[in-house]
Design a binder for these strands. Sequence first.
DNA 1: ATCTTTGCAAACTTTTTGCACCAAT
DNA 2: ATTGGTGCAAAAAGTTTGCAAAGAT
Lengths: 147, 147
Amino acid sequence: MERMDAAIQNLRLSGGRITHARKSVLQALVTARTHVTAEDLLNLVQADSPEIHVSTVYRTLDALEKLGVVDHVHLGHGRAVYHLTDNAHQHIVCERCSSVEEVPSRLFTRLGKDLMDNYHFKVRMNHFAVIGTCRKCLKETERTTSN
Amino acid sequence: MERMDAAIQNLRLSGGRITHARKSVLQALVTARTHVTAEDLLNLVQADSPEIHVSTVYRTLDALEKLGVVDHVHLGHGRAVYHLTDNAHQHIVCERCSSVEEVPSRLFTRLGKDLMDNYHFKVRMNHFAVIGTCRKCLKETERTTSN
DNA sequence: ATCTTTGCAAACTTTTTGCACCAAT
DNA sequence: ATTGGTGCAAAAAGTTTGCAAAGAT
C-alpha cells in the first residue's frame, strides 16, 4: 500500500483533505491495477460505500490527476480509463476489443527523442496510447478473412 | 479534387448513394484539410446547406469510415477529429492547446515493428495519436514556470 | 418501384456544475 | 470555525437512434 500512502501524503501536503470518498477511490485504483473507467471505479467504490456519487469519483480523479498521482487515456470510444501514474509503461489499445496492454517505456524512447528533436514536441510518456489490433483479435481476423 | 472523386466512386461501388449531403461533407473534409471535429464539419457544411443535420454528418462520416476514406482520432477531451485517410502521417496532439500536427510515418515504423515483434500488436498507423505538449505550449510553460 | 438516406426529435452516454449541507482540519 | 468536499439533481456535451418522408438508383 505504499502507493496509497504516497498519494494520501501528496493530497495532504497540497492542502487537500483526506475523506472517506477519496480513500475509497484511491483504494479502488490501487486494487484494480488494470485500467478502469470512471464507471468501473464507481462500482468498486460503491460495493463498500453505496453513498459515494459519480460526481465525487470524477472530482476525486480530477484532484488526483492534478497531483500527478492518477492519469487517464481515452480509448477508442470516448470514455476515459484511469490508472495510477507510472512512468514505466505505455498503453497499446486494441480498437477491436478495447483491451489495454502495457508495454515498457523503453520502446518509446527513440520516438520521443525523434519528436523532440524534429518537432520540439514533448511526448507525455504516461499519457500515450497506441491504437491497433491486439494479438488475440489479429488471430481472429486471420481466421475469418482469406487474407 | 481527385480525393473527392475517388471517395465518390468508392461510395457508389459499395452500393451507396451519392447525395447532396454526402457530397457536402466530403467537400468540407477535402477543403478543411486539417483535422476537424464533427461540429466543425457541420458548420462548414451548413454554411452552404443549412438544412443538413448533425446526425447526417455523423452518419456520413460513419459510412465514409467504413469505406476507409475517412478516419478519426480521439483528442484528449472526448470529441473526435476526422480527416481523410492518409497512410503517410500520424498525429501528435497537444494536450494543452488541442492542436494536432502531422508527422511522417517514417518516425513510427521502428515502433510498429517492435510492437509487432514483441507483442504481436499491429499498430493502426493512421489511427494513432501521440499525446504531449507542442512546441508553442512548451515555450509558454518555460516562460511561466521557473523550471 | 425500390431501398437508402435524410431531417427531426428524442434518447443516450459520459462528464460537469450549482448549491446547500457536511465534515476535515 | 473555516473552508474544502460531498451528495444530489439537473445540465451540458457529444453521439446515436426510431421513424416517416424524401430522394437516388
